[in-house]
Nucleic acid binder design. Structure first.
Lengths: 246, 246
DNA sequence: CGGTGTCTTGAATACCATCAAGTCTTGTGG
DNA sequence: CCACAAGACTTGATGGTATTCAAGACACCG
């Protein structure tokens, strides 16, 4: 089964960029690591969530910092007329939001795209640990800077770029993040791609109909190929040109 | 002169929300405060920058965290074809970006909108202080959460709202931030408003021409009035409805 | 088997951009 | 103080990009 392969793939990788692993507070990481010198006391719970399910709403985030251990998820802001905006895709090792290190009730919800494993770290314990070992801050600063950078990029894309550019840049951005996690498939231009077109639409501020038309155009020009929840960049140079037209 | 009045107004207010004041590291705040119990050692320099001038580019941010002391500035991302996206407006007390607490070379530039006073805090000293007094973190966490929240809001606005909504929300967002700084003029619905229409365009992802048309429409409907670098919200209820149509 | 979710395609429409011309203000140097 | 240039704003005409509406193909699942 396709989902079984995805599941295993998700289990085996992704931790290498995880802040919790970096900070040595994860109790059972998926990758091999040297045994922790001293076991840090950060309470945590683990949850497996099937695809398309809501992981949590902004109001539910009581006192934990959740981190994705495997699978893909999306941070979504809902508007009263039913339209949605995805502000961020979450890959293995990503915190739902770095602001959750402190208190913060974001007005959003997290949806699982694929089956997802999530680990919830106790915020109070994390903060106590942080105040005791300020050098741990650097781990979270890195995630913070990365989050901010992607967020600014998205603002520019939505404000000043065409549909073609937005979609190409979304795909390339995800490809780069997957590469860093060593989650490429086969060659360096083939990746797991579980997004539905409506996910792309919600992330790029477009309609699903128009996303379909743009992707068809990409295929017609032999830039990319999408099938079997997988994407191949056939013409990296040409596709990069589409993504960086200005 | 108008600019002279703006200058004085800027000198007298705005510090009340400043993180540097909150953390007690500012050497000469504009507002009255109790004398610091112990003078913390954070080197800092001060610079007055005339309107329309570039405050600094992303690459220039060597080892300081700059904070706006008075006046308005904008964080701008430039694209190679000359188009621009404003990711954030900076008001008195705002850090240019919380990510500058650490190292981070943002791909943007800061432009003064009005005459601006900026204080540059030494990052190394700030970090040292932070590692010694972890309770100071809360001050910066607050700024971080605020920055993230506004950034997410902008993503939703650019992705899923019409020109009318975007512009109304921009104005209301600024009005709210000015209120918190006690920078309202006369009543609670009148504010300093030094933005040019091209600033609004660059912030909302629209063209200056279309911004002009939308603002004219707002005026025709007696929702707002803009004149003399000042804005009055004539119909708060109606204007709010425009800003929150979904 | 019907139901649901996903994707595709075409036609009509809406929203905003682009182009262009003109007014008015602001600043500058003679 | 005036002439001139540059910037800021307005308004109308035209065009392009993306939305909306609609219908149908296809796969998957209970």
């Amino acid at each position: 089964m396709d989902s079984a392969r995805q599941g295993r793939a998700g289990r085996d990788v992704g931790c290498n960029l995880c802040s919790a692993l970096d900070a040595n507070v994860c109790q059972s990481p998926n990758v091999e690591t040297p045994p922790p010198a001293r076991t840090p006391l950060v309470r945590q719970s683990f949850q497996a969530i099937p695809g398309r399910r809501i992981v949590c709403r902004g109001q539910d985030l009581h006192d934990t910092l959740p981190i994705i251990c495997s699978g893909w998820a999306a941070v979504i802001v809902m508007l009263s007329d039913g339209s949605r905006q995805i502000t961020s895709f979450l890959l293995p090792g990503d915190m739902i939001s770095t602001t959750l290190l402190f208190e913060s009730k974001p007005n959003c919800q997290i949806e699982a795209i694929t089956d997802v494993d999530v680990r919830f770290f106790n915020r109070t314990d994390l903060n106590a640990l942080l105040h005791k070992n300020p050098e741990l801050l650097d781990t979270f600063f890195k995630a913070w800077v990365e989050e901010k950078s992607r967020s600014d990029q998205l603002i520019v894309d939505l404000g000043r770029r065409t549909a073609d550019e937005r979609i190409a840049r979304l795909i390339l951005g995800l490809a780069e993040r997957l590469s860093k996690r060593e989650m490429a498939r086969g060659g360096p231009t083939e990746f797991e791609f579980p997004l539905r077109q409506h996910h792309i639409a919600d992330a790029t501020g477009l309609t699903p109909v128009h996303v379909s038309k743009v992707l068809s155009e990409f295929r017609r020009n032999r830039l990319i190929n999408i099938s079997e929840r997988s994407i191949t960049i056939l013409d990296p140079v040409g596709f990069d040109r589409v993504a960086n037209m200005r």
